[in-house]
């Protein structure tokens, strides 16, 4: 994986993904090390994403690396009209690896082609966010002890949610069975269902949570954005049907965990937070170990 950019989850083979998860486990056991000493990590956030940026920066700091970069495009040369090509080529001179967040889809792939140092995609529009997918896999493996043969229930906006698309694709190598719960017009897009069909993965689609979470090992909730609805009344009506509450957790499997990519708005009621099933905050912490693993592997330090 040394010097390999991570733009799309498909850039890493199944074996490479598993290696990252193994490394993340080692970093979790020993998160403060000096292995990034003397290394410069550029974090280029062309749109703000505080959560992702802090997670990366925490990962770098704990490993003794230094950070350069910007936190949104308005404070950088981009606001003066510099092309992405020029920004990346320049920053590549100053850094050992570039972590990049950009609102335009495909920008990370392009950056990886013009950059002489590896590029880690921290989200390119609605396209890819592979470090999120890897931390999700790590969280699932950690809580379930395995990735194989799990029952995964994905809830919320499955049409526009890149997180659930990438996760569904990544898990398809591990014989999962999926339940997709969403309003009809926010169902999993056809291209991803075709992908699962080709891999022989079982999935069912539902409009209600109901009993679909009872057999689940993982319930993965995503936010339904108001902007997706043309009719605000319809939004109010639908919204409540997809809020996970403590009472829904009765009769679920003892190993079941609730995950969410965060930030949450109201789709998981706060009364879930203190249950043993709530895992989303630990999931965010796992992101630091996973990103330590990714940085170390790409820089060839492990």
């Amino acid at each position: 994986m040394k010097n390999k950019s991570l733009v799309s989850i498909n850039d890493f083979t199944k074996e490479e993904c598993l290696r990252i998860l193994d490394l993340a486990e080692k970093f979790e056991a020993n998160p403060v090390q000096d292995i990034l000493k003397g290394k410069v990590v550029a974090t280029l956030f062309f749109e703000p994403s505080t959560r992702t940026r802090l997670s990366f920066e925490s990962a770098v700091c704990k490993l003794g690396g230094k950070i350069i970069g910007f936190t949104d495009a308005s404070s950088s040369s981009v606001s003066k009209g510099e092309s992405l090509n020029d920004t990346i080529r320049t920053v590549a001179n100053y850094s050992d690896v570039i972590v990049m967040r950009h609102p335009i889809e495909g920008s990370a792939r392009y950056a990886s082609e013009v950059s002489k140092v590896p590029v880690i995609n921290a989200g390119d529009g609605a396209n890819q966010h592979p470090t999120q997918t890897l931390l999700d896999l790590y969280s699932i493996k950690k809580t379930q002890g395995k990735l194989e043969n799990l029952n995964i229930c994905l809830v919320g906006d499955l049409k526009y949610g890149r997180t659930v698309h990438s996760l569904a694709m990544a898990l398809s190598d591990f014989n999962p069975s999926f339940n997709f719960v969403s309003p009809k017009f926010l169902q999993m897009p056809k291209e991803y269902k075709m992908y699962l069909d080709n891999k022989g993965v079982k999935y069912d689609e539902h409009e209600e949570m109901k009993d679909n979470i009872k057999n689940a090992d993982i319930v993965y909730v995503t936010r339904i954005q108001r902007e997706r609805f043309s009719d605000p009344i319809e939004y109010e009506r639908v919204k409540n049907a997809y809020i996970l509450r403590k009472k829904h957790l009765e009769g679920t499997k003892p190993n079941m965990k609730v995950m969410h990519p965060l930030p949450r708005v109201n789709e998981i009621h706060p009364d879930v937070d203190d249950t043993t099933q709530a895992y989303y905050f630990t999931q965010a912490l796992n992101g630091v170990y996973t990103r330590q693993a990714i940085l170390a592997a790409i820089l060839g330090l492990v």
Partner: peptide
Amino acid sequence: VNPKCITNHE
């Protein structure tokens, strides 16, 4: 076809 694609911006 994607208006948000980098190829339509650079």
